[in-house]
Design a protein around this nucleic acid. Structure first.
Lengths: 193, 193
DNA sequence: GTATAATACTAATGCTATTAGTTTGTCTTA
DNA sequence: TAAGACAAACTAATAGCATTAGTATTATAC
């Protein structure tokens, strides 16, 4: 009936707030409409369907992660930047696990929006790796390895997959980053030859 | 009305078949009941709810993964076993992605069944790591790192997160395993001192 | 001022998990 | 062998979900 001033931005804002406050399970089109004091069907005037809406939410989350990472590595170089980046990434996931799960549950090649979002998150990683003087190809391999390690760690840690032995999680994570650093140093030396 | 001879095992069998044939999205209580020629409510005589049923399915999947891994490393030792294990793990995920997603989507500390399932999958990894003469603590750290790396890699690869640069995925995976091996060798030398 | 297009609506469909209450077949025991 | 109890299937209902078709209203452009 009347125009309520609903916009894509306002909808994504409300979605982020909903996920943060009520968790991932509460994130539904109906609940989101309720938050916005609007009927569920009205949201279809702004987003084609739930998947596209989730893509837009994911893009916003990717921006947040990128911002966290860039802030963390500001002014740093080499291994110091590498450790800071990894710590920031894990810290974001711990503090905003429900948001993190949204972006990690998305199929990255589904639409342009999510694909761009993926690029957003990789940027700070490439920035850090650029300091090591790797070949372009090696940089891409190590970028993948770093992302795989960080995401796999966070997923298992959150799911309770590390609980059956009382070793310190922080120490494992530190060792994992140190291992990646060692691998990068080796590749670095090889490319200098 | 009459007894149809439904059992926990038969239900899990049907669930696995359903997921493999129709994919993860088709896996619902209603669809599963349809496969078994039974009314949805009947399944509640055998499983408390969907989460518990999924836990039982996950346990079965964990057994399958464990079997694949053990077969792959039979008679092998050291790095050879490590590479074989990692390849088998990734191969299982690629060939049965829908099953893999089921087990990875589960909260491991929710019930005893899923917790045991988690242990099932870790066993072959510990077997391989036992060859390196690490301290018990180090073995646990490296087990976590290995699982994190493998799972993170598979997740990103499947989600299309590695697509934006044309470097070979197999080569990245090989480098990642090599990196873990390098890290383990370093820890090995330190514990021998 | 009027036509157009966008936005929000109502109402409906078909899917999901889950529960309560009922029938019926099978197994045990007297 | 008959009686009773238990387990397993049923029917029917609820409340949630995403989505679509069709309708009304409102702001904007002409």
């Amino acid at each position: 009936m009347p125009r309520k001033g609903l916009t894509k931005t306002a909808i994504v804002d409300a979605a982020i707030a909903l996920i943060e406050e009520q968790g991932n399970r509460a994130f539904s089109l109906n609940e989101l409409a309720r938050c916005l004091a609007v009927r569920p069907a009205s949201l279809y005037n702004h987003f084609e369907n739930m998947e596209v809406l989730t893509g837009a939410v994911g893009f916003r989350i990717a921006e947040m992660i990128r911002r966290s990472e860039l802030d963390a590595i500001a002014g740093m170089h080499g291994d110091e930047a590498l450790f800071a980046l990894c710590d920031a990434y894990r810290a974001f996931a711990r503090e905003h696990m429900d948001l993190y799960k949204v972006i990690m549950g998305m199929q990255k090649d589904k639409n342009a929006c999510t694909e761009t979002a993926c690029g957003e998150m990789i940027e700070p990683i490439l920035l850090v790796l650029s300091d090591y003087g790797l070949t372009e190809s090696d940089k891409m391999h190590w970028q993948r390895i770093l992302r795989a390690m960080m995401h796999g760690f966070i997923t298992h840690e959150y799911a309770g997959g590390f609980r059956h032995y009382p070793a310190d999680h922080n120490e494992t994570y530190r060792m994992a980053i140190q291992m990646v650093a060692l691998g990068i140093h080796t590749a670095q030396k090889e490319s200098e030859q």
